[in-house]
Simulated scan of single mutants.
Amino acid sequence: MKPNHLLRALALLLPVAASLMLTGCKIEDIPGLGPDPRTLAREAEAKAVGGGCRHAMRGLEDCYALNPKASKALVFAGWKDMDEYMRSNKMEGVPSVLGQAVPEKRSEEAEGTSSRNRS
């Protein structure tokens, strides 16, 4: 073969060889072609927020109000998944104590400090 024919043959075989090597790969496996990791993390966090809200026996509207930056669809998906899980395993929710015990504790601490300062 002459040098020109060799270059042409390599130019034709290179794309074929590359495509054969990549046929078994998923798009996510090829660096730079998969979804953004930050997006995946935000989606996972929104689903976890929904699951946590369901476990804390919070309604969806309360969950949306407490987490305005989270995607409502993903929060709902997490809430629904947790609801299904809790029903299938006969689990009870744990009531949220957010905002209930904290103010009482602070007022007791404030009274304790003010009575100490007086003596």
Score class of each variant (00 low, 15 high):
Asp62Lys: 00
Glu61Phe: 04
Glu104Pro: 03
Ala44Leu: 09
Gly32His: 05
Gly78Arg: 12
Thr39Glu: 11
Glu109Met: 13
Leu33Met: 13
Tyr85Met: 06
Ala110Asn: 11
Ser96Arg: 02
Gly50His: 05
Met57Arg: 11
Lys105Gly: 05
Val94Gly: 00
Ala48Ile: 03
Val49Asn: 02
Gly51Glu: 08
Asn4Gln: 14
Pro68Ala: 03
Val75Lys: 02
Ser71His: 06
Lys26Arg: 13
Arg42Met: 11
His5Leu: 12
Ala46Arg: 04
Leu10Gly: 09
Thr113Gly: 04
Asp83Asn: 12
Ile30Lys: 09
Leu98Ala: 13
Gly93Asp: 01
Ala11Phe: 06
Gln100His: 07
Met21Lys: 11
Glu45Lys: 08
Val94Thr: 14
Pro15Val: 12
Leu66Thr: 04
Thr23Asp: 08
Leu40Glu: 13
Leu10Ser: 12
Glu84Asp: 09
Leu13Arg: 10
Ser96Tyr: 02
Gly112Asp: 15
Lys47Asp: 07
Lys105Asp: 05
Ala11Cys: 07
Arg58Tyr: 00
Cys53Met: 09
Gly78Pro: 15
Leu98Val: 12
Arg42Glu: 14
Val75Gln: 00
Met91Phe: 07
Lys105Leu: 14
Ala56Glu: 14
Ser107Ala: 13
Arg118Leu: 15
Glu111Cys: 02
Pro15Trp: 05
Glu84Ala: 15
Pro31Ile: 06
Glu43His: 13
Tyr85Trp: 00
Asp29Ser: 15
Glu28Cys: 00
Gly24Pro: 09
Cys25Ala: 10
Thr39Asn: 05
Ala17Asn: 02
Ala48Gly: 01
Ala48Leu: 13
Glu61Met: 06
Leu10Asp: 05
Pro95Glu: 08
Asp36Phe: 07
Arg38Cys: 03
Ala44Phe: 08
Lys105Ser: 11
Asp29Glu: 15
Gln100Thr: 14
Gly32Cys: 08
Leu40Thr: 07
Thr23Asn: 09
Ser114Gln: 12
Lys105Glu: 10
Asp36Tyr: 04
Val16Gly: 06
Ala41Phe: 10
Ser96Cys: 03
Pro68Tyr: 03
Phe76Arg: 13
Ala70Val: 10
Gln100Trp: 03
Thr23Val: 13
Ala18Val: 15
Pro3Leu: 08
Asp36Asn: 15
Leu98Glu: 09
Leu60Ile: 10
Thr39His: 10
Lys80Val: 06
Val94Asp: 10
Gly24Leu: 05
Arg87Thr: 05
Lys26Val: 03
Ala18Lys: 01
Gly50Glu: 04
Leu7Pro: 00
Leu14Phe: 07
Ala110Thr: 11
His5Phe: 08
Gly112Ala: 15
Met57Ser: 15
Asp81Glu: 14
Gly93Cys: 07
Val97Leu: 08
Arg118Met: 14
Ile30Ser: 09
Gly78Trp: 15
Ala65Asn: 06
Ile30Val: 15
Leu20Cys: 10
Arg38Ser: 12
Glu61Ala: 04
Tyr64Met: 02
Arg54Asn: 05
Gly99His: 10
Gly78Ser: 13
Ser119Glu: 14
Ala73Gln: 14
Val49Gln: 06
Ala46Gly: 01
Met1Ala: 11
